Simulated scan of single mutants.
Amino acid sequence: MSVTQQYLLDTYRAAQLGERTPPAPGAHDWQVVREVRDYGRFDAVVHERPAHGRVRAALGRLLRGLRGGGARTPRPLP
């Protein structure tokens, strides 16, 4: 059963019982995304990590590693 079919079934049941209809699927998706982001920031502060710019810094480290750039220490000569 798809999400839409389940929503229609729940709406029908609510109408038959005289209850409030459930929220439409996806109605609160952005609120959930914001709450997850806020929790990540809170967790970073609690564990004494930077709360902002962590994703950008991680992507920068990843891209520097893939390109082979960045500061490297020279290998000693044999």
Rank of each mutant, 00 (worst) to 15 (best):
V46F: 06
T21Q: 11
F42E: 10
A51R: 02
A58Q: 11
Q31S: 11
P78D: 08
T4M: 12
F42A: 15
V36K: 11
M1L: 13
T4E: 07
G18V: 02
R61H: 05
P25R: 01
T4W: 04
E48N: 09
P23K: 01
V3F: 04
L66D: 08
L59T: 10
E35L: 12
Y39F: 15
E35W: 01
R49I: 00
G18D: 01
G70D: 02
T11S: 11
P78F: 02
G60Q: 12
E48F: 03
R67F: 14
E35F: 02
A44F: 01
R37G: 04
R64A: 15
A27Y: 04
Q6P: 01
G68E: 02
R72Q: 14
T21F: 03
P74R: 07
A15E: 08
A27I: 05
L77E: 15
R61Q: 09
Q16M: 11
D29K: 07
L62W: 08
G53V: 03
L77V: 15
R13N: 10
Y12A: 14
Y12R: 06
G70M: 03
G26Y: 01
E35D: 09
R61S: 10
Y7H: 13
T73N: 06
A24R: 10
Q16N: 03
V32C: 06
L66R: 12
G68H: 02
A27T: 08
R20L: 10
H52I: 15
Y12M: 10
R75N: 06
A58Y: 06
A58N: 06
H52T: 15
G18H: 00
Q16S: 02
R37D: 10
L8E: 12
R37Q: 09
V36I: 10
R13E: 11
V33F: 05
R61V: 08
L8M: 11
W30K: 15
A71S: 14
V33R: 08
